[in-house]
């Protein structure tokens, strides 16, 4: 049992070490503070935060509906909602394009309203939300199904109104699941590449997030690409670390 475990860990860790060994450390500060790097990092953090908020606003109600109600077609809905989880992100980007693009399903309506989504920062947030939302939903729904049901019934019999039950009983007990779902959604947004490239395009400061910048620079300036990749790994480690600490805290 230990050997495969060690192999598995090695398989995951070795590439990270290899990446670290390729970082041109003397030039690292200059590389990660260049105009294009800073713009990409800032944009990535802003859009990932925005899409995490979107995921929370939309995902929590969806998870509640899936876990606490039952209606015809619920199982089908659950499957469909999770589809973006397994869809290649490029396909997700195309799907968004066929919906919100100029020639898309809603394209004409949006054009009449004077709204242009493609090539805007809004498109980046939409692409990230599309791929990240299922992570939050599935994580929260799992927790909702395993805990809290009986406590909610008790709260209701004691005369608590549904809103009070939700805020004072349900949300506190599912907090770990909600938190890990939120972190997963943020991390997935931060790493989003394919859907963004397809749906939003790539322009510095507007739509070119960190992964897109890395993809672009790997041809001409591999050093910068490696340095930025390392920054991305650092952020990932910090985010996951914070999530784990808050989770294990009593």
């Amino acid at each position: 049992m230990l050997v495969p475990a060690a192999l598995g860990c090695l398989f995951l860790l070795l590439p990270l070490l290899a990446m670290g060994s390729r970082v041109p450390w003397p030039r690292f500060p200059a590389l990660v503070t260049s105009d294009s790097s800073r713009a990409a990092l800032l944009l990535s953090l802003q859009t990932s935060l925005a899409s995490t908020v979107v995921c929370l606003l939309v995902g929590v109600p969806v998870a509640l509906v899936l876990a606490r109600t039952s209606f015809a077609g619920q199982r089908l809905l659950r499957v469909l909602v999770l589809v973006p989880l397994v869809l290649p992100p490029v396909v997700g980007g195309l799907a968004l394009l066929y919906t919100f693009g100029r020639r898309g399903l809603l394209g004409h309506t949006l054009e009449l309203l004077g709204v242009q989504i493609a090539f805007s920062t809004v498109a980046v947030v939409m692409a990230q939300s599309f791929v990240a939302l299922p992570f939050l939903i599935t994580s929260l729904e799992g927790t909702l199904r395993s805990v809290g049901g009986r406590l909610e019934v008790v709260a209701a019999t004691l005369g608590a109104r549904p809103t009070t039950t939700l805020l004072r009983v349900t949300l506190p007990v599912v907090m770990p699941g909600l938190l890990s779902g939120t972190v997963l959604a943020f991390a997935r947004s931060l790493g989003e590449f394919g859907a963004t490239l397809t749906f939003a395009g790539s322009l510095q400061g507007v739509t070119r997030t960190l992964p897109l910048e890395i993809y672009l620079q790997r041809e001409t300036d591999p050093d910068e690409a490696v340095a930025m990749s390392f920054v991305l790994i650092l952020i990932a480690v910090v985010v996951i670390g914070i999530a784990q600490r808050t989770r294990t805290r009593p």
Binding site: L97, G101, G201, S202, Y215
Partner: peptide
Amino acid sequence: TAVSEESSVTDVLGKVENGE
């Protein structure tokens, strides 16, 4: 002044093909 600066020529072509 471009609305997008793609990393490959096929991505540019794609954006024209789909009318964006």
